[in-house]
């Protein structure tokens, strides 16, 4: 199971890209067609598993009033990038120890200290 995890993550990304790139809601069959056209053919059962995982994670929503079900993104790619970057840049003061950044924003004074080192007269 653990060995399959990264592979499944990659499939989710490929499927999600197809859903994001489409201007309208897609059926599973539409997604399959698109992936095949893009050179990434996927078995229908696998695709349905991936779609249901994406739905559970809150990335896609399905319209179940029509047959076959139509899948559409819950939020745009840009919205999700914004959510991610908000967490990375840690604009909230009491952010949890979720991730460790290389460096935050360096103050002007600290930047001057570093530039001095680089000039070689530090």
């Amino acid at each position: 199971m653990r060995k399959n995890m990264p592979a499944l993550g990659e499939l989710e990304r490929v499927v999600m890209d197809a859903v994001w790139d489409s201007p309208e809601a897609l059926s599973a069959y539409d997604v399959q067609q698109q992936l095949e056209a893009a050179g990434r053919p996927l078995a229908a059962t696998t695709l349905l598993t991936v779609l249901s995982r994406l739905e559970k994670k809150g990335f896609v929503a399905s319209d179940r009033t029509v047959r076959p079900y139509r899948y559409s993104p819950v939020a745009s790619r840009a919205d999700h990038v914004a959510e991610l970057m908000h967490e990375v840049l840690g604009e909230s003061r009491d952010r949890m120890a979720v991730l460790e950044r290389f460096v935050g924003s360096v103050s002007e004074e600290d930047a001057a200290v570093l530039r001095k080192l680089l000039r070689g007269d530090g």
Binding site: V88, L89, G90, E91, F102, V103, G104, S105, V106, S107, D110, A111, L114, R115, L118
Partner: peptide
């Protein structure tokens, strides 16, 4: 590296 990343005018001052 620190200057390139930290002094690039990105928000999120620690």
């Amino acid at each position: 590296a620190i200057l390139q990343v930290g002094a690039s005018g990105v928000p999120g001052a620690e």
